[in-house]
Design a protein around this nucleic acid. Structure first.
Length: 941
RNA sequence: GGGUGCUUAGCUCAGCGGUAGAGCGUCGCCCUUACAAGGCGGUGGUCGUAGGUUCGAUCCCUACAGCACCCACCA
């Protein structure tokens, strides 16, 4: 083996071999265990969030596979409607064209082409991470099978009355030219103004002043509302106002939507461009007046003067005109919430448009009569409330249920071309026909169409298809095997439905609403099953300072750059190339040069994965610090070198298990610790505490196996006792091989590489470590007596080391060692561990001082009643030793006083559990024993 | 306005009704034949503040302060 662990060399070797072995596919036996990959954007690239999440999923999948489960990691990608369409439109724009120049069919063809070109980027990056998803079943949300599922769901819901089409006020993104759902809108606080505008009554005798942040919308006002109980304005209710800048008359109405204490207490009502006003308009039977085109420009319903103006230009002109008319009463600064489109960052304009909705709000009884409960969200809420689905950490349950309790109908139509086209047709009279295709739609129609049918131009919200992921990927609705474009079978519902429900969904909290809740809704409705038993909400990855990673901040990290490393200059180039604003660009460059003056070091996939595991506590964010990753790379190196030590101490060929029991205490101890470690690790898998899991293994490997067992093995391997040497050799190897298996789900590459050498030494001839079973902790013998012996040994050794260090004795110098007092057990142990003590502490063979002998002055450590001493002669400063001992004594005296305080408290003795009291008594006894020995030692000095 | 977190060592974070922990950093000694990406030994914390419950509180409860995040229609 090489002297150091070199990730690049070993990572390249194993992935292809694993994949070719077919081991990623479920073996067809054992209990089903399924994990669904949240399908990433097909044309996207891997980011830190993916890498983290996928590491967790891969750990779980590898672990359960090793445990003999019928493990399936269902993989696939998402067509990401808006995002992907936008990329291709940008490409066209750089050629000076728009999608309309191409036409629908040619444009879609072009998107498919882009999907073919870039669709393998992210899946190849996932392979670099070591992801063991079943690629033979890879799906795409727009492949034929999944599209069929989408159509069936749409049609079934439509026919059940749960999908409807209606002219509603929706969130309109004027930049993208499509409706978006409530979830795709973020409210952002912005600095703006509040303007007060006077509306005169038609008789010219009176007026009201309304306050607004959007004066331009006054062109679409249909009323002014005041609170019904507001005495200030009671006399005006029912009066007519002249809407300024127009020739329209509007009424003053009373509605308790109005907050008397806000603004002027009078609200202008613009039903066509405000959600609240829409509701008010409906209550008062006031038809909305739309004043904007879909591009958010003023339309023909407004006075000619404003037509064609963009909404913000219109605002300026309206204000100017109001000012000129003397109707602008006040302008003041005001912070307001502005609805921003997540996708385009354009300001959303509420618009009245024809859209498709999923009814999530109507209560229906079993027989369809009103009342009862909500057909889609009801079961989805129950599944979580009754515990069928559990969130980990469980406080996310609240988030989920509260959202579903307050949900609105889901706008599912998008005015895009890339996506699942809505399977609905219209005749010339505007009647709607829904079906698999035109013929099916006609066949299911209650009336015959008037004239030709024309298909709906819109596509479905991307999340509509991802909502079906848990069952659509398994071949639902199930008419025999589903094949991919190469003709290979990718799913077969009749067989694959055993994977529903999946075991756990690993995902971010940001898509609980977008995706998790909707999967529960569809899966419950269409299969009667829950989609998954547990939802593990993983943390969001942030930078080392806890800041959100974003390209414009320049603090993103590419997981591949961490794996492979990257020089400073290429890093600067790649981080700034998509930044168009020069100031931002300069800032990002500066930051990168400051944060990574040497570029990013290559830490390898294993260390990256281990870091993710170690950071994965229940906290909701993790701060990714390269320093930490470098530490775990060191761990990989440690494991590598431990393996190197073990292997270089083994003879050629297989190492047979020695006959008879383990020869040494150290072996019995390390196996005891190994067993405990495995038990703990298994527990951590159940609770998804990957941080504890990683730490448990880290500590075992480094602090016990390497620091103590390997060191203890050296005298045994080189000693005269051939039986002990043979037994130790075998145990070194057995523990190594077991540890490799236990670590494999976290750090698959390095463990596989080592195992390929270590496994065969034990006569194991599996193809790969990937296919080995998980270690059986139950089969490992426990020996607590041995554990006590090693504990004693560690105490003796660290006592000596402390003296050496504090007395500045060179680590290389071999020193004499004296033992005094102690009991018979100390004598037995001292004899047993004499070679180990001498070797590890660099001492001469320990000499017992006979009772009654005059001791020469020495530095001492105390273990129980045993004194472990290093004679002063020429080595130790007497005064320094006196100080050291007295410091130690005062520390112990403090401890004793603490114990005495507790035990002297009658209430403590009376109320505390017996074992706590007993423990306290034991402690005080132990401290006193040590103190006595130290006093004696001090006296001898 | 509603909801959810967080506050523990210089930094990043675990922990928990009964002796305060890890990684990184830092200090000292050491290239000891697996590993200097290493070894050995240190330093470092009145666990955000104030009350309460308890024999005992970093942990449970209450209030307060500060910091995040999510949801929501205040013109």
């Amino acid at each position: 083996m090489e002297k150091s662990f070199a990730p690049a060399q070993i990572e390249s070797k194993w992935y292809a071999r694993w994949e070719a072995s077919g081991a990623f596919q479920p073996p067809g036996q054992g209990e089903p265990y399924c994990i669904l990959l949240p399908p990433p954007n097909v044309t996207g690239t891997l980011h830190m969030g993916h890498a983290f999440q996928q590491t967790v999923m891969d750990m779980l999948t590898r672990y359960q596979r090793m445990r003999g489960m019928n493990a399936l990691w269902q993989v696939g990608t998402d067509h990401a409607g808006i995002a992907t369409q936008k990329i291709v439109e940008n490409q066209l724009a750089s050629e000076g064209r728009t999608r309309h120049d191409l036409g629908r069919d040619a444009f879609i063809e072009r998107v498919w082409k882009w999907k073919q070109e870039s669709g393998s980027t992210i899946t190849n990056q996932m392979r670099r991470l070591g992801v063991t998803a079943d690629w033979s079943r890879e799906r795409f949300t727009m492949d034929e099978g999944l599209s069929a599922a989408v159509r069936k769901v749409f049609i079934d819901w439509y026919r059940a009355g749960l999908i409807y089409r209606g002219n509603r006020l929706v969130n309109w993104d004027p930049a993208l030219g499509t409706a978006v759902s409530d979830l795709e809108v973020n409210n952002v606080e912005r600095d703006g103004h509040m303007w007060s505008i006077r509306y005169m009554t038609s008789d010219g005798k009176d007026s009201v002043v309304v306050a607004t942040t959007r004066p331009e919308t006054m062109l679409g006002d249909v009323a002014v509302a005041v609170h019904p109980d507001d005495e200030r304005f009671a006399h005006l209710v029912g009066k007519t106002l002249c809407l300024p800048l127009t020739d329209r008359l509007i009424p003053v109405i009373a509605d308790d939507y109005v907050d008397r204490d806000f603004g002027t207490g009078c609200v202008k009502i613009t039903p066509a461009h405000d959600f609240n006003d829409y509701a008010v308009g409906q209550r008062h039977n006031l038809p909305p007046i739309e004043i904007f085109t879909l591009e958010a420009k003023v339309n023909a319903n407004a006075p000619e003067r404003y037509r064609g103006l963009d909404r913000y230009d219109a605002r300026k002109l309206v204000l100017t005109d109001l000012e000129a008319a003397g109707l602008l009463v006040e302008t003041k600064a005001h912070k307001l919430q502005v609805p921003i489109s997540q996708r385009s960052e354009a300001v959303i304009e509420p618009m009245l448009t024809d859209q498709w909705f999923v009814d999530l709000t109507t209560d229906v009884q079993q027989d369809g009569r009103p009342g009862g409960r909500k057909a889609i969200t009801g079961p989805a809420l129950d599944a979580v409330r009754n515990g069928d689905i559990k969130f980990v950490p469980e406080n996310w349950t609240n988030t989920y249920t509260q959202w579903l309790d307050n949900i609105q109908d889901w706008c599912i139509s998008r005015q895009l071309w890339w996506g699942h086209r809505i399977p609905a047709w219209y005749d010339e009279a505007g009647n709607i026909f829904v079906g698999e295709d035109e013929a099916d739609a006609r066949a299911h129609a209650s009336t015959s169409p008037v004239g030709a049918l024309r298909q709906d131009n819109d596509v479905l919200d991307t999340w509509f298809s991802s909502a079906l992921w848990p069952f659509s990927t398994l071949g639902w609705p199930g008419h025999g095997p589903v094949r991919n474009e190469r003709g290979e079978v990718v799913a077969n519902w009749e067989q694959d439905k055993v994977f529903l429900p999946s075991a756990v969904l690993v995902t971010g909290f940001d898509i609980i609403f977008f995706w998790v809740a909707r999967m529960v809704m569809t899966t419950k409705y269409f299969t009667g099953q829950i989609p998954f038993r547990e939802v593990y909400i993983n943390a969001i990855v942030r930078d080392a300072e806890g800041k959100k990673m974003s390209k414009s901040k320049g603090n993103t990290l590419d997981p591949l750059d961490l794996i492979d490393g990257i020089e400073l200059e290429p890093l600067v180039t790649k981080s700034t190339k998509s930044l168009l604003i020069p100031q931002v660009r300069a800032k990002v460059e500066k930051r990168i040069r400051k944060d990574y003056p040497e570029g990013i070091p290559a830490i390898g996939t294993d260390a990256l994965r281990f870091t993710f595991a170690a950071l994965a506590s229940y906290s909701r964010t993790i701060n990714f610090d390269i320093k930490r990753a470098e530490g775990y790379k060191a761990f990989c190196n440690k494991l590598w070198n431990a393996a190197r030590f073990v292997l270089m101490n083994l003879p050629e060929g297989e190492i047979p298990a020695p006959a008879g029991a383990l020869a040494t205490e150290a072996e019995r101890w390390i196996l005891t610790r190994l067993k405990q470690t495995l038990v703990e690790v298994e527990q951590h898998y159940i609770t998804y505490r990957f941080d504890h899991l990683a730490q448990t293994l880290y500590e075992f490997v480094w602090n016990e196996y390497c620091d103590w067992f390997l060191e203890l093995s050296k005298p045994a391997l080189n000693g005269d006792d051939a039986v002990a040497a043979a037994s130790t050799r075998h145990t070194l190897l057995v523990v190594l091989e077991t540890v490799l298996r236990a670590l494999h789900p976290i750090i698959p590459f390095i463990t596989e590489e080592i195992w390929q050498t270590a496994g065969p030494k034990l006569g194991l001839h599996e193809h790969t470590l990937l296919q080995r079973p998980w270690p059986n902790a139950g089969a490992i013998a426990e020996d607590n007596a041995a554990a006590n012996e090693i504990e004693w040994f560690k105490n003796v050794l660290s006592g000596i080391r402390k003296i050496r260090s504090e007395m500045n004795i060179s680590p290389a110098k071999v020193i004499p060692l004296l033992l005094a007092d102690g009991d018979t057990e100390d004598r037995t142990r001292a004899a047993k561990f004499a070679p180990q003590i001498a070797f590890l502490a660099r001492t001469e063979a320990p000499q017992w001082i006979a009772a009654g002998t005059t001791e020469s002055a020495a530095a001492a450590a105390v273990v129980g009643t045993l004194r472990v001493m290093i004679p002063l002669a020429g080595l130790i400063d007497l005064d320094a030793e006196k100080t050291r001992i007295s410091k130690e004594m005062s520390r112990i005296e403090i401890e004793i006083r603490k114990c005495e305080g507790k035990l002297g408290n009658a209430n403590f003795v009376a109320h505390a559990p017996a074992d706590v009291v007993a423990q306290e008594r034991q402690r005080i006894f132990d401290w006193n024993t040590t103190l006595t020995a130290l006093r004696e030692q001090a006296a001898k000095l």
